[in-house]
Design a protein around this nucleic acid. Structure first.
Lengths: 119, 119
DNA sequence: TAAACATATGAATATATGTTCATATGTTTA
DNA sequence: TAAACATATGAACATATATTCATATGTTTA
């Protein structure tokens, strides 16, 4: 009863054809979630700093921590997130792990994002 | 004392020249935060859906809510966030507010992001 | 092989964020 | 002008997330 009233009320102003047409051309839900995850990963200052640094050259965890002035543990945690999104990779050299960019889309994404930021 | 020890210990493995060189070419902190805010805004499925819908055509709040199956209140809150980032704008027509994209960078950002998602 | 080292990882905590619910605002219509 | 309507907004709440701290892992060196 109440549900029905709500539904009627909620739908009173909807332009149905329009909604259906737009709905038909929307990306699938998995695509949306995957894309959101990617952007969410880029949406943190610490991770952005890491990526900007790695855009220049490969660096070990220790150097990254010194560079962006965050604890090595925090850096390590964030690198894990970036690895999960296949944005960075690493190679081992003795005791050190050297991280580098694993995806050139980051460069174009940053360029586009910066254009937006600069309005 | 202890601080000094920590500092020495923490810096023992740092490749100083490298760090300084990279640091010199990093974007400013305001730029990083602004860019992070932009990506963070794009990092939510609800907001992504709204933007994908608005990429097709302008729509009123009511239609957007029906389209992405979220309450009108939630839509309104998220549109506010998008407005704050100057990603959408609106015009009033009688009782309705019609929202539309306010920035074409969104299209290129989505295109790049999707390329990454598709590996 | 034990100690030192570089890094990873899990748990804990504090903060940020998204949705809901209740209410306010601005516009049209009766 | 009062009622209906479309939307906005603030507070509350539950969940997600970033950092810290303690500890574990894998590598080198003494």
């Amino acid at each position: 009863m109440i549900d029905e009233m709500n539904e009627i009320c909620a739908e009173c102003c909807i332009h149905e054809e329009k909604v259906k047409a737009v709905q038909a051309d929307m990306p699938g839900i998995e695509t949306i979630f995957a894309l959101a995850d990617t952007f969410k990963t880029l949406g943190d200052p610490t991770r952005l700093k890491l990526l900007f640094a790695l855009m220049q050259q490969e660096l070990c965890v220790c150097d990254l921590a010194a560079l962006i002035e965050v604890s090595e543990s925090a850096v390590s945690h964030q690198l894990r997130v970036l690895r999960g999104q296949k944005l960075v990779r690493f190679r081992r050299d003795g005791k050190n792990l050297y991280y580098s960019l694993d995806d050139d889309h980051v460069r174009t994404l940053f360029a586009q994002g910066l254009e937006h930021v600069r309005e």
